[in-house]
Design a protein around this nucleic acid. Structure first.
Length: 569
RNA sequence: UGGGGUGUGGUGAAGUGGUAUCACGGCAGAUUCUGGUUCUGCUUUCAGGGGUUCGAAUCCUCUCACCCCAGCCA
């Protein structure tokens, strides 16, 4: 019989003070009202240490930890679901802890491992045998598949299903003792081989597997399966609400069955839709393929949606958490627009990133009427959004660099940057007018000759005349060379799908090696390059390349870019 | 007639019998020493049919579409 654990019903107050409301928080509010679990709220984030965390995990981390934080005495455990020694490694445990901590969540002393419960799990398995609810099965993997039936046909009972309790007890003990070959026997739950839910067709709960476990070494040669280990681990830890993704929905009857048969504390499993984001992939398998086939440099490649990749790209924990809060929690499969993630970083970085000037594609500008050898220190605001971030000095001299794209010899209508005969402002410095364009034999523009108006020092004209553009610049002699890496979507289509490799964006990385940065910038790690975007220093690459290497976190919103794109079509 | 889910603007979410709401995106404008930020306005939606009701995204019913499940993975 179907039983809905969350009845659609009267309007519920949202949890705590956040004002946020979603179906999970509604369930918890209702549970609190009837004093279920003595009013406790206890969640857990249960990663398997077999890979790196990505932003999809962040959704789950935020959900679990924030729900705990929203409730008085609410707790959230960090539990490693380490029941498969073949796939799991201590290295992943460390990276997962680092990522969760980086996001800003605290699991206190509650760092647990399913492997801590192996002994207890074994005892519970014995209890199931004693209750005639589990049996040792000698079917091979292939045979078991045959016996299982199909989606539309029921399965058949295993010939070993009717073994006596004594025989099962003996065999199971000897499985543990290592008397049998890997894969030769399993312990199975005795449920219903004709169930429409394939998970209930006598699922395996223990398999024989001689492998070194990252924590228990070679102490065990039998390991519990997820369905058994997970619900019991939740129960042992006193979890009240066990939140997981939609694909475990079919496992809930099994989750409930084990706990009912064992008659132990019974958390409620609640499923929600996993996160998808456009223009990227969020499955361990696909991310793994990207790494293994060399489409990216590693799990922390700044184009990867992994937490380590996003961190290296310059995303802040605040931006990611804000994103996770905004996408909501629901039960329908969906794909969030990458633009929302980008909006969230811009919003955060706009408030906190100090501004600097950097020229990505330098074009030399010579101010003909500026005294040779003269240097002036211009006052520049570090962050117009936050006065407390103060000011700095930027050296100005006769020879400068501006952005190549800020000049056009024959500008179209809506281009209002520098052009022959046109006057623009150099930010925090002077108005300049372009007088002459110097080209090489190939016809490439290599140098501009301009004049400046000494009256406009600081950037304002005494006669109040206006200019239509303000350009960023650096002093040629005072600026330093840097490498800048510009990132774009990893995939050129919103939903890469099964053939995702075919849709890789060839321009997801562009490396610019002769950029010029203002001297003060050397001290910044995260910053805005004015008019360009948000960037962060890549410490590893800076060390390797022996010059500053910056990653572009995200570009600024770009109206001119949009106009150009439209014109291009 | 295998089982389990899900359908609300371009996208993600709220809404649980009483004017469909919010955010992102897009478009237009204002402000601006960043074509940034900020501000304003516009844009477009209840999968479909039938029923109940004074009144339906919401209740009933039929249909359609999509997602998940046949690991000794989690």
């Amino acid at each position: 019989m179907k039983e809905k654990k969350w009845k659609k019903g009267e309007r519920l107050e949202s949890t705590a003070s956040t004002g946020r409301s979603d179906f999970i928080r509604d369930i918890i509010s209702e549970d609190l009202k009837i004093n279920k679990n003595d009013g406790r709220v206890h969640t857990r984030f249960p990663p398997e240490p077999n890979g790196y965390l990505h932003i999809g995990h962040a959704k789950s981390i935020c959900l679990n930890f924030e729900i705990a934080n929203e409730n008085k005495e609410g707790l959230c455990n960090l539990r490693f679901d380490d029941t498969n020694p073949i796939k799991e490694e201590a290295e992943y445990v460390d990276s997962i802890k680092e990522d969760v901590y980086w996001l800003g969540f605290d699991w206190g002393e509650r760092e647990y491992y399913a492997s801590d419960y192996f002994e207890t799990l074994y005892k519970y398995a014995v209890q199931l045998i004693k209750n005639t609810k589990a049996y040792v099965c000698d079917l091979s993997a292939d045979e078991m598949r045959e016996y299982r039936g199909t989606l539309t046909e029921p399965g058949k009972d295993s010939p070993y299903r009717a073994r006596s309790i004594e025989e099962n007890l003996d065999l199971f003990e000897r499985m543990r003792a290592g008397e049998f070959k890997d894969g030769s026997r399993t312990l199975r739950a005795k449920i219903d081989m004709s169930s429409g839910n394939i998970n209930m067709r006598d699922p395996v709960i223990y398999r024989i597997q001689r492998a070194v476990h990252h924590r228990t070494g070679d102490k065990w040669c039998i390991y519990p399966m997820y369905d058994f280990a997970h619900c019991v681990s939740d129960s042992i830890e006193g979890i009240t609400h066990s939140l997981c993704t939609l694909e475990f929905e079919d496992h809930r009857p099994l989750y409930d069955w084990f706990l009912d048969e064992l008659a132990i504390h019974h958390p409620q499993q609640i499923e929600f839709a996993r996160l998808n984001i456009t223009h990227t992939v969020l499955s361990k398998r696909k991310l793994n393929t990207l790494v293994n086939q060399g489409h990216v440099t590693g799990w922390d490649d700044p184009r990867m949606p992994t937490l380590s990749g996003l961190r290296r790209r310059g995303y802040t924990p605040e931006a990611i958490k804000n994103f996770c809060d905004r996408i909501g929690v629901a039960r329908r499969n969906s794909a969030v627009d990458m633009a929302l993630l980008e909006h969230c970083v811009r919003e955060d970085l706009n408030k906190r990133a100090p501004r600097y000037m950097a020229v990505l594609n330098p074009l030399k500008v010579i101010i003909d009427n500026y005294p040779e050898g003269q240097v002036e220190e211009m006052d520049a605001v570090n962050n117009p959004e936050d006065e407390s971030m103060g000011k700095r000095k930027v050296p100005f001299s006769r020879e400068l660099y501006i952005e190549l794209h800020d000049f056009m010899e024959d500008p179209p209508k809506k281009f209002f940057r520098l052009a022959p005969g046109r006057e623009v402002r150099l930010r925090y410095a002077y108005f300049i007018t372009c007088k002459d364009v110097v080209k090489n034999e190939k016809g490439d523009i290599i140098e501009l000759h301009c004049t400046y108006d000494p009256q406009t020092k600081g950037g304002d004209a005494p006669d109040k005349r206006k200019v239509k553009a303000t350009l960023h610049w650096v002093s040629a002699a005072h600026s330093r060379e840097a490498e800048v890496r510009l990132y774009d979507h990893l995939f050129s289509v919103p939903e890469p799908g099964k053939d995702f490799i075919d849709h890789l964006n060839p321009d997801s990385l562009r490396v610019l090696t002769s950029c010029r940065i203002e001297p003060a910038l050397l001290e910044a790690d995260m910053c805005q390059f004015e008019r360009l975007g948000y960037f962060c220093l890549d410490p590893q690459e800076t060390f390797v390349k022996r010059k500053p290497v910056f990653n572009r976190t995200v570009s600024l919103r770009d109206k001119w870019g949009k106009i150009q794109k439209k014109a291009g079509r």
